[in-house]
């Protein structure tokens, strides 16, 4: 069952790389949050009760409800629903993401003795998610979609930490939470600041600082 959730999680990344509507991106974030919650509840047989409670509540509350709600708010405030001018056409985008995901699957089928401590499916999909997110960040032009990709990367890292079959120190969980805090708080605030200062959320406006002559 858990593998089905993980595969679904990987597929959300494919959808993210094909659509340009930011609302759909946020919906996918909700889906990822719920899937992570399900993976959390099914995969933790080796942990203590308190830790599971903390992790599950944190994922459901923060990843599936709080962040998407916050992003919706920013989206409504800035009225920019589409990220049209990606550097690469959607078809190729889908193709490359699929290849990365497929390589992840292939990796999970290879049996390596030193990998006995990790869940291979979870590990490889998490790695593919991180790579796809990083790659999407480089080709998207809207600040908000960069933020969304950053959060999917965080989700990927979270999945990676779930793939290690040993009890993580509680500090690591606090770390994940802090990252999420960065994502919504600072990035969210900056998005609205950038929007009010530049009247638009294009990353291309943010290229004034450079090493040749500029007025400062």
């Amino acid at each position: 069952m858990i593998n089905a959730y993980i595969i679904l999680f990987g597929l959300t990344m494919l959808y993210l790389s094909t659509t340009s509507r930011l609302k759909a991106h946020i919906r996918m974030l909700i889906a990822q949050g719920i899937l992570l919650f399900l993976i959390c509840t099914t995969s933790f047989s080796h942990c203590t009760g308190g830790l599971i409670a903390f992790l599950t509540v944190e994922t459901l509350l923060v990843k599936a409800i709080l962040i998407p709600w916050f992003l919706y708010k920013v989206l409504n405030k800035t009225h920019s629903n589409r990220d049209t001018d990606a550097n690469i056409a959607h078809f190729y985008c889908l193709l490359i993401s699929s290849v990365i995901l497929f390589l992840g699957f292939l990796f999970s089928t290879i049996h390596i003795p030193s990998l006995s401590m990790i869940n291979p499916m979870c590990f490889s999909i998490a790695l593919s998610t991180i790579i796809i997110s990083l790659w999407l960040i480089t080709i998207k032009h809207k600040v908000l979609s960069n933020v969304i990709e950053f959060i999917t990367m965080e989700n990927g890292i979270f999945l990676l930490s779930l793939s290690v079959a040993k009890e993580m120190p509680i500090l690591v969980n606090i770390g994940v939470l802090l990252d999420v805090f960065i994502a919504i708080y600072i990035l969210g605030l900056f998005v609205s600041e950038i929007n009010s200062e530049f009247n638009d959320l294009e990353v291309t406006h943010l290229s004034d600082l450079k090493d040749c002559e500029y007025d400062d």
Binding site: F150, M153, G175, L209
Partner: peptide, 24 residues
């Protein structure tokens, strides 16, 4: 300064997230 701060937060956050992968 907005541009500089944005780049700072975004690049460093990604960097720190990768460091977290390293810790895992």
């Amino acid at each position: 300064s907005i541009e500089a701060a944005w780049k700072y937060v975004f690049i460093c956050s990604i960097g720190i997230a990768l460091a977290f992968v390293g810790i895992i």
